[in-house]
Design a protein around this nucleic acid. Structure first.
Lengths: 146, 146
DNA sequence: GTGCTTGCAAACAGTTTGCAGATAG
DNA sequence: CTATCTGCAAACTGTTTGCAAGCAC
């Protein structure tokens, strides 16, 4: 994983390059995205920003996330019956592993799916643009507790 | 794919077995699920049922879908920024291919992901329960039109 | 100073729920 | 006959939008 500080500065630079304004709220969000290694949801991000900026609003979080999504700098993960989660480290599609018990979401480092994309494209005639691969299971910690 | 009529009767039997009541609205929904080979959304199903039962409601569609989900007889597919779609043919997880242009959803017959599940389970220590694999792309029809 | 951004509140969409009346078994 | 199911309407959840005031540049 990229160093959080480096990633944070990268995000700041990208916003500046495109002449987006660097408000304190945005800085706080960028820092959170760069440092939190889980995959926080919008409201989790909001809760943490609120500690520093008590008047901040969820709408602002969403608006900034929209900007970042549009720049392909965060990956939005929508889950069944859950709110969306955001990955600001690696904005490109990659497999995730979700614990159905504690809801922890981890990245799968292995990029097993790259071969699949080629195969599927070839077999179906589709021009494959992207994919989404999630595994649902019980993580080692939660297996013990049962 | 299983013959729609056979699948329809199968669904009817499963409901009867568990002593759910076979109302005309439910019969209509089961028939739709068994025959429609796209992956209809709740409101698409509702629209079609409404032709036969003008007083039917979306809530009833959802309630019956809930029953079927609970029996593992339909697979609910939630998509980003879209409403849920339902697969009543093959209720077990399998890969899908979604055209980002015409929104068509097709099943991938290949079950490439079975090996992956094993690999991931072994590498991560997770007890894998299920997975979700969607490819996003442009289908052959939509490629021509561009 | 200009106009992008914030933050509130209200709107929105899909889904779920409560309940009185209808109906399958 | 009775418990389940229907269908309406209202509630709910996460997300989006409109707009006046605020602030980055």
């Amino acid at each position: 994983m990229v160093d959080p500080q480096v990633r944070f500065e990268e995000l700041v630079d990208k916003l500046r390059e495109r002449e987006y304004r660097l408000t304190p709220q945005r800085i706080a969000l960028l820092r959170l995205l760069a440092t939190s290694d889980g995959h926080p949801s919008a409201s989790q991000l909001y809760d943490q920003i609120k500690d520093q900026f008590p008047t901040t609003s969820l709408a602002t979080v969403y608006k900034t996330l929209d900007v970042l999504k549009g720049m392909d700098e965060v990956l939005e993960l929508r889950f069944s019956g859950d709110d969306n989660h955001y990955d600001g480290h690696n904005p490109h599609p990659h497999p995730h592993l979700i614990c159905v018990h504690c809801r922890k979401i981890i990245d799968l480092e292995v990029n097993i799916a790259q071969d699949l994309v080629q195969q599927v494209s070839w077999r179906s005639g589709y021009q494959i643009i992207s994919y989404r691969l999630d595994f649902y299971g019980v993580c080692p910690d939660c297996q013990e507790g049962e």
